[in-house]
Amino acid sequence: MSADSPREVGERIAARRRARRLTQTGLASAAHVSYATIRAVERGARRPSDEVIEAIAAALSVDATQLRTGYVGTERRVHQALPELSATIAGYDIPQGSPTRTPDELANAISTAVVWRLGAQYGRIATEIPSLLGDAIRYAHAARGAEQRTAARMLAAAARVGDAVAFKYGARDLSARLIDLMRWAADRTEDPLVQAATAYVRTEVFFTARSHAAGLAALEQAIDVAPAPSSRSEAASRGALHMRAAVIAGRDGNADAANTHLEHARQLGDQVAREGIYLGTAFGPDSVRIHEVSVAVGLGRDHVDRALRVATEWTPPVGLPAERRSGFYIELARAQGWAGLQADAFGSLKAARAAAPQHTREHPWAREVAGSLRRFHRADAEALSHFAHWIGAV
């Protein structure tokens, strides 16, 4: 339990809200909680639950620890949810009764969870995903006729949401099982775009195993069977696979393959023309620029100038998903650290935290850069110490 009184927490929330020029009604809407809850919390009449404090923090673009000292609710809730999530998918290929939600209710709940995934709201996901995924599995078995493909699409999306939590919090075996479930569902959609999205996510398995050459081969195989890019969604699907292939080729030290795939992604990004979310994956010219930084960092210190050049010419727009913006700043911080730009690296880490605090806190590269800065950078020593403690680098 936090040592902060409800009044102290409420005052911090009110101050942050006013700094962002939000009314209580506006904050309630952005956080998806009631106006009465915001009003009671701000005047100290109610101690906000973990879920409420995370929702308010996300709406204010701050970390929950800035509202409640020593907050660890996200990690606790995620780790509590992982065993239940594992049990939920243990028999995914076995019919287990009827879902508790109607198809429309299930579709809406999964759509909301996808938004949480893109926004790196892992605490919210952990609260809902075991039940949500259980219903999606039951619906996939109960559906009949053409509805079976719709149910399978929903299950693939729900499995991807669950994988996001498992992968980010280090449950690698569970993540691999969720990807297997996603592949099982994708095959039943008979939709090549869903299958392409699944191949994109499956790359996590190869990253984890450091089997980069095999991961590149798997992605190139997926590109070969992906639909021709005759529509925006087809171009985005193929472009996302090329982006992912460029990154894993970079991790493999294969600069030629990385550059080739990045150029294909760039051309498809230009064809798509505007950034968007396609079957749960962000793609467009901005995402391609972010992946150029990722490729440069993956290739190593000799390619630092390339990463820095992208950041000099461009910054991610606020409209991009929070997790993607956070990833950009984390990888940029690594490049800046290599280049001896410690103050810039710390600024990038803070930008990553502002974009997606939960994602930043669980990212091993963010922790690595923060630890290095704390050891060797003397400016902002107190702020760096606070950040390093927050991220677990000490």
Rank of each mutant, 00 (worst) to 15 (best):
A240V: 06
T203F: 07
F328V: 02
N254L: 02
A159M: 09
R232W: 05
G26I: 14
A240R: 03
P357S: 05
A158K: 09
R210N: 07
V205P: 02
G70I: 09
T208P: 04
W184Q: 00
H386M: 11
I391A: 00
E54L: 14
D163H: 08
H264N: 05
A45T: 12
A164T: 08
R144I: 13
G250L: 06
R353Y: 10
T112Q: 14
A185H: 08
D180A: 13
V304P: 07
P357C: 05
Q195E: 14
P227C: 13
R361C: 06
F206Q: 11
R244C: 15
W390T: 11
S348Q: 10
Q96I: 06
T360N: 00
D344R: 12
Y139G: 10
L279E: 03
N108H: 14
G44V: 10
R361A: 07
A345K: 06
D302W: 02
A3W: 08
A214C: 00
A186W: 12
L85T: 05
P364M: 10
S287F: 03
A151T: 00
R244K: 15
L178C: 08
E11H: 12
D180E: 15
R309E: 02
H363F: 02
G239W: 02
A345R: 00
L85K: 09
T25K: 14
G276H: 03
A87S: 13
D173A: 12
R68C: 13
S98F: 10
G300F: 01
M154C: 07
R301E: 04
R149I: 03
F207V: 01
A31S: 15
A3Y: 04
P6Q: 13
A59D: 08
V161L: 07
D305H: 06
A40T: 02
V62T: 14
T312W: 00
P103M: 07
D173N: 11
K350W: 09
D104N: 08
Y122H: 12
A45M: 13
A339Y: 00
G26L: 13
L262G: 10
L262A: 12
E42V: 14
L216Q: 15
H79G: 08
V394K: 02
